[in-house]
Simulated assay, not measured.
Amino acid sequence: MNEPNADGTVGFTRMQDGTEAEYALLHRLEERYAAGLADRLLTQLETLEEGLSGYRISRLDHSLQSATRAERDGADTDWIVAALLHDIGDGLAPFNHDSLAADILAPYVREEVTWVVRHHGIFQLAYYGDKIGADPQARRKYADSPHYDAAVTFCERWDQTSFDPDYETLPLSHFAPMVREVFARPVWAEAVLRPGAREPLIAA
């Protein structure tokens, strides 16, 4: 059996030639790298400070404001972190940023939350679609989804309203522990995904 190289790398140049020992090494390295995901996401959020221009606040401030509103509504950690990260894909996937954010969150949060983040772009059209030649009622095709009302609320209370330079927004450091908590969870665990479960966005 071929062992990994002394420098901590594998010897193969084609994946089909790798040995169990080499893939065990890669698995250990991947686990170690994955453990740093939360910090990489927080760093990526900071880049939104220099992102898309034209609004009265930066994309980072929009993300922080969305998360602040979610917390003040009494939402749980999954919703707050989703509100914080929902536009994290703006710089890398400007035409499908919602899908990119959803795919980042998917292994770590309730399926309900992932669905809402994945579809928030089309739900947002309700507020401006008629001004850009798009259908403001496009979201109606998802009317039968059990998550439809949650997506409406997410956009109404946290997303479309969070462009206010005068709103008292909490800093990224406030949300960092929540991000680390979420991304330290076991991935794809049923107890995390909770298929069919729904949690209120607004505390009673």
Rank of each mutant, 00 (worst) to 15 (best):
R32I: 02
T43I: 05
D61M: 11
L37R: 12
L25P: 06
R28A: 13
R40Y: 14
G11P: 11
G8S: 03
Y55R: 15
T19W: 01
R56W: 02
L26F: 04
D61I: 10
A6W: 04
M1Q: 15
Q16P: 00
G36Q: 11
E50V: 04
L29K: 15
T19A: 05
D7T: 03
S58Q: 10
E31L: 14
L25R: 02
D39V: 06
E50D: 03
H27S: 04
S58F: 01
L48C: 01
L42W: 05
L52W: 02
Y23P: 05
R59N: 13
G8C: 02
A21H: 08
F12M: 04
R59A: 10
T13I: 14
G11T: 09
F12Y: 07
E46R: 15
L48E: 00
A6P: 09
E49G: 00
E50F: 05
R32E: 14
G8A: 01
D61G: 04
L42Y: 05
F12P: 03
T47M: 10
G18N: 02
R59V: 11
L29R: 14
E31Q: 13
L25G: 05
E50Q: 06
V10W: 03
Y23Q: 07
Q16I: 07
G54W: 02
E31G: 10
R32P: 02
P4F: 08
L48P: 00
M15T: 13
G18Q: 01
G54P: 12
E30W: 11
E46S: 11
L26E: 12
A6C: 08
Q44G: 11
R56V: 07
D17E: 15
G11A: 14
D17L: 13
E50K: 08
L29F: 06
E22V: 05
L26N: 07
L37H: 11
G11N: 12
L37K: 10
G51T: 08
L52N: 09
F12W: 06
D17F: 12
S53G: 12
V10Q: 06
L37V: 10
E49A: 00
A21W: 03
T13V: 13
D7L: 02
L25F: 02
E3Y: 12
E22K: 01
I57C: 03
G11F: 08
P4M: 06
E3M: 12
I57E: 04
S53R: 12
L48V: 01
G51K: 11
G36K: 08
A24S: 15
E20V: 09
P4W: 07
T9H: 01
A6Q: 13
L60D: 03
A6F: 06
G51H: 10
T19H: 04
M15D: 11
G51F: 02
L29P: 03
E50M: 02
G54T: 09
I57Q: 02
Y33G: 03
A35V: 00
E46V: 09
T47I: 07
N5A: 14
L26V: 15
N5I: 06
Q16T: 08
G11V: 07
